[in-house]
Structures are given as C-alpha cells and as structure tokens.
Design a binder for these strands. Structure first.
Length: 571
RNA sequence: GCUCCCGUAGUUCAAUGGAUAGAACAGGGGACUUCUAAGCCUCUGAUGUAGGUUCGAUUCCUGCCGGGAGCACCA
C-alpha cells in the first residue's frame, strides 16, 4: 500500500513538473489523521515556490483525478500534510489476506537470494551461562528469525572460547580440588557448579598469588600444545559438561545452532593470516608482539600475536571470519556482541579491511548493552553471578503460583509455566533498543502484566478461547463478507501493517519495533474484547468480529514466533 | 588523558527530522460479574543544560553537567 501511495504521489508530482521532490510516508500516531500521512507539500513548498497549503491542494487535486478504490479520501491537515484515509474495501481485503496467508502472514521474500550468518550467544565453556548471556541469545535469535521472515537463508553460529587463559584458570581451579571432582553419574548441576567455582577461584588466585599465576600460564601453554595427559583429561571433562549444560538451555530458549565454532579451531588460521600480514607490512612487530597499529585509521593499537607467539582473540577473530566464509558462502555475516567490544571490533575490522576486504565488506557488528544488576556489576570472574537456569527456575515458580487457579494437569502446567517464563524474560530484553544497557531487577524486570511477554501470550490464548466458543456455536466463517453498515475499528487499522513492520524491524535491526507493534495489536484487541461480546448468536456482525479475532490470533502467533517467544495454547 | 555510548513521567522503556512526546509499572478513581481479570475504562505525571542548523529538533551540530564502556600481549 505504501508503495502504491508513493506511486500515486510521484505521478501527481510529475504532472505538476515537480518530480524531483523527496518525501516520506508514515502512519500518523492518531487515527483521526488518516492511515498514511505524506509530508510532500511541506518539504517541496520552497522548490515549488508556493506555500505548503497551496502545494498540498494542487497535489490533492491531481490525486483526486484518479483515486483507486482502496483510498477513501485525501485530506490536507496541520502544516500541510496530505492524509490518506483507506476505504472499507481496503480493510476487508486486508483482513482476507491475513486469514488466507495464515502462518505466512507478515513475511516477505525481499531477501530471498541472501545468505546470512548470525553469530551470537558466544559462551565460553568452563564459565557459567549467566543471565547476561540471555541478552545476545534473545536478540540474536530474534534478528535471525526476522531475517528468515524477510526471506533470507539463515545460519546460526555459536563461537566459543574453549582455549585461552580463562580455561587455564578453570583447570587450575579444578586441580586444586580434585577430591571434589564430580563423577560421571553425578548430576549436571553439580558438575557445572564445580566448574563455576573452579573458575572463579582460579581467576581470583591469578590476580592475588604470583605462584598460582605462573602455574596457570604454564597450564595455558600445555593446553595449547595438548602435551599433558592429566590436563587434557580435565579439559575434556570440563568442556563436555559445559557444552551439555548449554545445550539444555538453548533448547529451552528455542535456539538451534547450525555451527559450533571454537577458538581452538580458529587459532591456527588466525595466526597464519597475521603472519601473512606481517610480511606484507600490514602488521608490525612491537616489543616482541605482533600488533596492528590502528592509529593510522584514528583507532588504537592492538596485539594480534603475543610475544609468546600465541594468537589473541583479535587474530582468532580474523581466522573465524575466514572459517565462516569457507563453511557458508554468505552474503552477510552479522556478529552480535556486547557493546564493550565496539572499539575492539573497529580495530579488528580495520585489519580485516587490509587483509581480506571482500569479507570485511559483508560483515556487520551489532552490539547489545550490558545487563547490570541493581546490586552492582556481575562477573563470572568474581563468582557473583545469577545463572540463567536459576533465574528461569525462580520465574517458573512465580508463574506457577499465578497459575494455581487453573485446572490443568501437572505436565501441561509445567509446559505452560516454562513457556510463560521464557516469554517474560525474552520480552524484557527485546522490548528495548539493542545496544543500551539494562539495569536488571528481578521484581521489576520480569513482568507478567502490561508491557510484557505474558500479556501477548495471554491475549493470544484469549483470542483462541473466543474462537473456540464461536466454533461451538458454528459461527466461524472466515469468508464472511464485511457487513454493509460496518464501522471500521481501530484494530483493523493496524492489522494490515504487519508486513511493513517485519520489514522495518529487520532493516533497522530493531526487534523492539515488532514488539511494540504486537503490543499495540494486543491492546487494541483487549479493548475490542472488552467493548462488546464478540461471539453473539443474535448479532449479525458477530461473524465478522470472529474473523477479526482470528486475524489477531494469527498475527500475535506469527509475531511471537519471529521474536523467538513460545506461544502457549492456554494459560 | 584520548576515543566511543547513554541522559525522556516517581520507576522501567518507546518515538525513519513531523502534527497534541507513546506505553507499562507505581499512585488516584471506576465499570462488568457475559467469550480466560495475566484483562478493560479513566485521571495525575517527562525530553539534563546553554546555544546553533531547520518551515519544524527527543532525534542533527557545538559547549557544559551527569552516568557507563574501551584504550598492548585477557576474552
């Protein structure tokens, strides 16, 4: 529709010999200003040598020569906006479209030849999966699904730091407490807790105790060389436990990765790239380390190979880029990390630009904000973390209390409680612009009311329940015609916008746009629901209201899916 | 010190340079007891500060104030 209006205006401008004017089309915030507002007369006033009102009425006259049946009228308002009001016919067709497309509604094929790889979550084995990691997972998954909804072929990659000093710290910690090493048949929770405390002990001793530090550095070298069997054994166990526990959470959160990439694999490739670059003069030797001088591009210097000859994270990231390109010949690679790595990536990209410009060109870095506890900074190094699984358990408990009145059997209740929990947590992350910090407070951040995930889920189940009732009374006819005396509702005035939202939400890398849209649809529906009885045998408008309800359910369901939020059938 | 990000109701968040700055929570008031009250209706309440650009600035530019992050062998 937007395109159609654009065309109409361009035609009108052409007839007025003003075709060079640029303009924007948007939805006014207030329905009284119509369904689409165009600023062409304001922007073009100067060029046309007329005041905005005059120009607006000229354009309006031009438009009215040839108005399609989807547009009811055009009005001039405010400082010279042209407001387009869509016709009842348009809304009837739009509703039909939702109902016909069902699960496909909202999607498009704009990116159908695009292959995009998303890298997110990036957990480090041996460290815990804490609530901070929920951010990249929620955002990355939503962006990946948005890309799919725009027609792209998507792969999901998880890049994990399975080698390096942090691992050595954890292994050192494990060694100090071998008697407590969990056995194979111990629970995964015990194993993971053991790793967590080993890591934080190792990390703290590394800073406090010179001797421990030396031992850890030594372990790090041996791990790289795989030269010590005892260490290799501990490493193998620890890594396996970590990955197992992560996998359980991915499943709960709804992410399935296509690639698991490890630093232990990218290290050699990265090192080779840096060595090549050194010969070409792109990297330089400085104090025995190999560095990239970012200063030549207004950035700072970073070390790519240590004086010991070991590749740093920087070098590994170069190796990773090449590796991803080899695995999946992508058109775009999107990396999602914390915003504290913004400057870091600028330097890595600058080096990449010189070493492999074709890859740099198709790589994009998106950041998410820090999740800070109201009680202070959280770090697995200090051990004061809230793990993702403990948060989930706490929220599940709260949800179940809320569900105590429901007459569901226990298994189903568990299922629903988990879905609502994941919905509440993910929503609290997705509702805001990625990149900004979140101050996390359990009571305030996890909400079940109002602007929340459960509100959307609840609205959906409520719509289903209305449809259920309608079905019982045989009042469901999805092909029913719009009643002749039908007054178009506010709800219908937003239902048709979903495809535009899906497009914008991905283009702007902003899942919060889709979130906001779904909230608007839900709020309008709840209002609609409260205003009148939807299903009413004695009301000839009832059948049409049922179709609208069906469309609402479809939109929320599809929208939640794209956000990566589960959709319970009852709650 | 240098670089980057952020300052919006009491609180947590929205707002491609557009019309009267939206929600939610908290607080005040209310309705129905009918399809799920995790709901609905209603009221109160905000752009850190000083300039600039613009027909129009929360949005762009500059200074100041306040908060956060990054800046050499960690990831």
């Amino acid at each position: 529709m937007k395109e159609e209006i654009k065309k109409l205006i361009k035609n009108a401008l052409k007839n007025l010999n003003l075709s060079q004017i640029e303009f924007t089309i948007e939805h006014p915030t207030d329905f009284s200003h119509g369904d689409y507002a165009v600023n062409v007369a304001i922007v073009g006033a100067k060029e046309a040598g007329k005041n905005p009102q005059e120009l607006a009425s000229d354009i309006k006259a031009e438009l009215e020569n040839n108005l399609p049946e989807t547009i009811e009228k055009v009005e001039i308002a405010g400082p010279g906006f042209l407001n387009f009001f869509l016709s009842k016919k348009f809304f009837e067709n739009a509703l039909k479209r939702v109902v016909n497309e069902e699960n496909e509604y909202g999607k498009n094929t704009r990116l159908k030849d695009q292959k995009i790889i998303f890298e997110y979550t990036d957990l480090n084995p041996f460290k815990s999966f804490h609530i901070g990691h929920l951010m990249p997972n929620a955002i990355g998954e939503a962006l990946a699904r948005l890309a799919e909804a725009n027609g792209a072929e998507v792969k999901r990659a998880n890049y994990q730091g399975d080698i390096g000093l942090h691992v050595a710290k954890a292994i050192w910690g494990m060694k100090q407490n071998l008697s407590a090493l969990p056995k194979d048949d111990d629970s995964l929770t015990e194993k993971v807790d053991f790793l967590g405390s080993s890591y934080s002990f190792g990390a703290s001793q590394y800073e406090k105790d010179e001797e421990a530090k030396n031992e850890i550095v030594e372990i790090n070298k041996k791990l790289f060389a795989k030269s010590d069997n005892e260490l290799n054994e501990l490493y193998k166990k620890g890594k396996e436990w970590s990955l197992q526990s992560f996998e359980i959470l991915y499943r709960v959160l709804g992410t399935t990765f296509d690639y698991y990439l490890f630093e232990s694999e990218t290290a050699d490739i990265g090192k080779k790239i840096v060595e090549e670059g050194l010969e070409k003069g792109i990297f330089e030797k400085s104090e025995e380390a190999i560095v990239y001088k970012g200063e030549k591009k207004g950035l700072h210097t970073r070390v790519f190979l240590t004086s010991e000859g070991l590749p740093t994270y920087e070098a590994k990231d170069l190796g990773l880029a090449r590796m991803k390109d080899d695995k999946f010949d992508y058109d775009k690679s999107v990396i999602i990390t914390a915003n504290e790595q913004k400057e870091y990536f600028k330097v890595v990209f600058a080096a990449m630009e010189e070493m492999m410009p074709e890859i740099r060109e198709k790589t994009e870095h998106i950041t998410f904000g820090l999740l800070q506890l109201s009680s202070g900074k959280m770090s697995s190094r200090l051990g004061n973390v809230i793990t993702a699984s403990s948060l989930i358990a706490d929220v599940v408990k709260k949800v179940k209390e809320k569900m105590s009145g429901r007459d569901f059997d226990e298994d189903f209740k568990d299922l629903v409680a988990l879905a609502v929990t994941v919905g509440a947590i993910k929503y609290s992350i997705l509702k805001q612009t990625p990149g900004k910090n979140i101050v996390f407070d359990f009571e305030k951040s996890i909400s079940f009311e109002g602007d929340s995930g459960p509100y959307l889920q609840y609205t959906h189940t409520r719509a289903l329940s209305v449809l259920e009732k309608a079905k019982g009374l045989s009042l469901v006819d999805l092909n029913v015609k719009q009643p002749s005396d039908w007054q178009v509702t506010n709800l219908e005035k937003i239902l048709y916008q979903m495809p535009e939202v899906i497009k914008d939400s991905f283009e702007d890398r902003g899942p919060q746009k889709l979130v906001k849209y779904l909230i608007e649809v839900s709020a309008e529906f709840n209002s609609f629901y409260g205003n009148q009885k939807i299903v009413d045998e004695n009301d000839e408008h009832s059948a049409y209201r049922v179709v609208i309800t069906h469309a609402v359910a479809t939109i929320i369901k599809n929208g939640l899916y794209i956000l990566g939020i589960p959709v319970p059938s009852k709650m």
